[in-house]
Design a protein around this nucleic acid. Structure first.
Lengths: 221, 221
DNA sequence: AAAAAGTGTTAAAAAACTCTTAACACAAAT
DNA sequence: ATTTGTGTTAAGAGTTTTTTAACACTTTTT
């Protein structure tokens, strides 16, 4: 479950947002000023909702310092429509900007978008086109139909998918999937890759796994 | 360099966007309908700017099918302000939504946000003019287009580029690229250099590799 | 200017690597 | 105790890369 920090000086709005987020399965932390936000900010927080009209420090400073502590998505909420101000915020690293008054559902949708990006590496479910991989349940579905991969096969595919579009060297695969002590043979990896390709193909997935000759493999998306 | 696909039926707007993007160092591809977008869509495209009022298929279908082809960020541009429609688009996987008329700078800022995530992890990049070499992913791009080098070719070029403007002796190349035990023939190196030069030339790069007679080679920048 | 030494390019042979299938040993499940 | 599934190895076919060899060309030396 992801944690959102709501930074908003208006108590009513802050609480309202907190409830909305809570009902949509987020952990919520609240701060009522920029300085408080900086104090509360820690590694557990995954995204910041930042109101601009804060007492004390101005929004620009806050973004700057928040980003220094942890580089996570910041969505700015403000009544300001001045385009120059907006652009400044983007330059400072804001990921999104919603103009007050905004629709809660839209805000939720935008939160989702910006959390999704972070997701790819450590979320439970990784979805790439027709393939959906659940790292918690060790299941893989192609077009919604579950297929069976052995544990080793699963680990290899997971590693490749987590590093989509990048070459994963054979040595990295060995180090990640096998115990460091006993490392398998090159040929062993070939066989596993072959089996993975077969199962994916049989289930109707495209051919994503590319061989990078003498280096490793790449999940091409 | 990233490639943006602009899908917009109004020729003027399409061209205008194309120019704006071009001036901001993006490669641009244009499509004037949803069906055309699906045809043009390929692996080189990194982000889609999608106008909603398209002839033929409606925007929802297009997003759906684009995402099936390749899961890249889609930013919807539309005059529609109906919140339900907006939400539908987010549900279909749109990453962002800008209401027409919009500010070009803001659009650029949003494009940057959504492209950023692809970049973050690929950090080991050496860039020299039009050549970009990524030592992590074992890829080389000339003017943004990937080219294929074999492992040996890659190692040689990497070594030369890492020592730009310095002479790299043949014996250093042999020691670095080949196992120390069995060292290849001079002629072998010639052939590899020749192949590297060819591939770079074909991709449109200048002739950087200089022969230092009887000593070795130099990547001149 | 001629000879010698070194380089560039191409095609073909050789080597290295990969893919697939099958077999076997072993572990887990029935 | 039997069945089912997994991981590894081996072997042959297939693919890609690397090297060799030949010849034309360039630079250096004599």
């Amino acid at each position: 479950m992801k944690t959102v920090l709501v930074v908003e000086d208006d108590k009513n709005i802050n609480e309202m947002l907190g409830e909305v987020l809570h009902h949509n399965n987020y952990n919520v932390k609240s701060a009522y000023s920029g300085t408080e936000a900086l104090l509360v900010m820690n590694k557990d927080i995954d995204l910041v909702l930042l109101d601009l009209m804060l007492p004390g420090k101005n929004g620009e400073e806050i973004i700057n310092e928040l980003k220094k502590i942890k580089n996570i998505p910041v969505i700015v909420m403000s009544a300001i429509t001045d385009i120059e101000k907006k652009l400044d915020l983007f330059k400072l690293g804001a990921e999104d900007y919603v103009t007050k008054p905004f629709n809660n559902e839209e805000l939720l949708a935008r939160i989702k978008v910006h959390l999704k990006k972070e997701n790819t590496l450590d979320s439970d479910v990784i979805k790439i086109n027709e393939i959906e991989l659940n790292t918690k349940t060790y299941t893989i579905a192609v077009n919604g139909n579950n297929i069976n991969l052995s544990k080793t096969e699963f680990e290899i595919l997971k590693l490749l998918i987590q590093n989509s579009n990048k070459v994963v060297t054979k040595s990295i695969i060995f180090d990640t999937v096998w115990d460091n002590f006993y490392s398998a043979d090159d040929n062993t990896l070939n066989v596993h890759i072959s089996k993975i390709r077969n199962k994916l193909k049989k289930a109707g997935a495209k051919d994503y796994i590319e061989t990078i000759w003498s280096i490793g493999y790449k999940f091409k998306n």
